Amino acid sequence: MSTVMAIAMAVVMFSAQRSFPRSVGGLREWVIGLVGLILASVLFALNGLVPSWLLLPVANSVFLWGAGMQMIGTQLFYGVRSSWWLFHLSWLLGLVVMGIWLYWKPNFPMRVAMYSFLMLALTFQQFLVIIRFGERHLSAWFFAALSLMLSATLLHRGVMALQAGGAGYDAMHGGPNHSMYLAVLSFMTLLLPVGFMTVATRCLQKLLEQRSNRDPLTAVLNRRGFAEVHAQENLRARRQGTPLAVMSLDLDFFKAINDRHGHAVGDQVLVDVAGVISSALRGSDAVARFGGEEFVVLLADTHQARAELVAQRIQFALRQPRPGQSLPSYTLSIGIACQLDPAEDLDSLLLRSDRALYRAKQLGRDRIEVACEALAMPPAPVLPVARLYT
C-alpha cells in the first residue's frame, strides 16, 4: 500500500513539476527519489525469485539513492547548496556494507545498523536544512517533524541493532523493534512526500499571490496590489492619526522613445524608472505601475513637504549621469496629492494626483505639481486626457 501511495505522490509531484518547472525547486529530484524508493520496493518484493547475494546489494543501494535524492530535492527547494558528496557517499558505502557483512562476514544486525546510520545521515541533513532555512510556518514545522521522527526511528534502530540480537537475524522476523521500524518507514514513504508537498504548495500560493499583485515587467505592484497596500496603510493612518500622500508619475514623450528606439528599449526604460523610483523610497512606501508609462507611489506618514522632497529626489536621480547606462535620456512629470481627511478614499486621492500630473504636463513637463483641495479643483474630465500624456 505504501508503494502504491508513493506512486500516486510521484504522479502528483510530476504534475506540479511540469506546471511550475522553474518556480519551485526540488520537485524533479523528489519525483526521482520516489521512483527510486518504488523501484527498491519492487526489488525487495522479488526476494526468493532472485538470489539474495545479487538482490540485496542492489535493492538497498537503490533505496539509499532514492532517499538521497529526496534530501537533494529539499536542499534545492530552499536554495541550499546540494550535498552531492553525502548523496554519493551514502549509496557507495551501502555497497561496501553489503560486501563486508553479507559476503565476507555475514552479520544481519551489523548490516541493519550500518544502513540505519547511512539513512540517518540523509534524513537528519534534511531536517537541519528545514530548520535552518524553512519558513516559520505550520507547513515547514510539519515537514521538519516528519524528518525528525524518521531520524529518531533510524537512530533507535541502529543502536538496537548494535546490541546482541536487538535487530533480529533476518529481514522478516526481526523482533518488535524491527517491526516498528518497518511500520514507521512504510508510513514515512507516504508522509514525507506529503510534508514536502505541503511546503511546496505554500510556496506556490505565495508565488501566485505575488504574480497577481505584481507587474510582470517591472516587478513593482500592479493596481490590485497597490489597492491592498493602501487599504492597510490607510487603516494604520486612521488609528495613529498620520497623513498619507500619493504621487502620480508619468514618463514624458514615452511614445517618441518607443517610436525612435523600439518597444524593447521602451520596456528597459520602464524597468529603469521603476528602479529609480523604488530607490528613492522608504521600506514603508510603495510603488506601482498602473499601465503604460504611468506609475503611482504611496507615501505613508508623509506631509506635503516630504512628498515634494521625495519627488525632487527622483527627478534629481534621473538627471544624474549613470555609468554604463545605455538607455535614452528621459524625464518624469509628477503630481502630488496629500490626504485631506482620514475618510478620503483611494479613488479621490488618485483623481487629485492625476489632475496635478496633468497640470505638470500642461506647464511644460519634467516638473512637480501639488494638488489643490478637492473643492477648488475644476470638474475637468482628467482620466481620458491622461491617456494622451505623451
Rank of each mutant, 00 (worst) to 15 (best):
Q163T: 15
F295G: 00
A8V: 15
L95D: 01
N222I: 02
A59C: 06
S248T: 14
L281K: 05
L208D: 04
T302R: 07
T74R: 00
L191K: 01
D170M: 05
F226D: 01
Y115R: 02
M197R: 01
G168S: 11
A380R: 15
V35L: 15
F87P: 00
W53E: 13
R355G: 13
W104A: 11
L95G: 14
S212E: 11
H261C: 08
S41K: 00
G134E: 09
P381K: 14
L86Q: 11
L118W: 07
S52E: 09
D170A: 05
F20L: 15
R359G: 01
L221H: 12
G94W: 14
F142P: 00
W53Q: 10
V62Y: 07
R387V: 04
R157I: 08
Q312C: 09
V31F: 12
I7W: 09
A380K: 11
L363I: 01
F77S: 08
S284E: 10
M377V: 09
E135K: 15
E135N: 06
G225P: 07
V385M: 14
R289Y: 03
N258V: 05
E369T: 10
G262N: 09
V271N: 02
G262E: 11
V159W: 14
R28Y: 14
S179R: 12
L56H: 09
A274F: 02
G166T: 11
L154Q: 10
P243V: 00
R132S: 13
P243L: 05
P193F: 07
R352L: 09
E209L: 11
M180D: 12
W53S: 12
D267L: 04
L92C: 04
F254A: 08
L251W: 08
T390V: 03
H137M: 02
A360Y: 12
S15E: 11
R136Q: 14
S326R: 10
M71T: 12
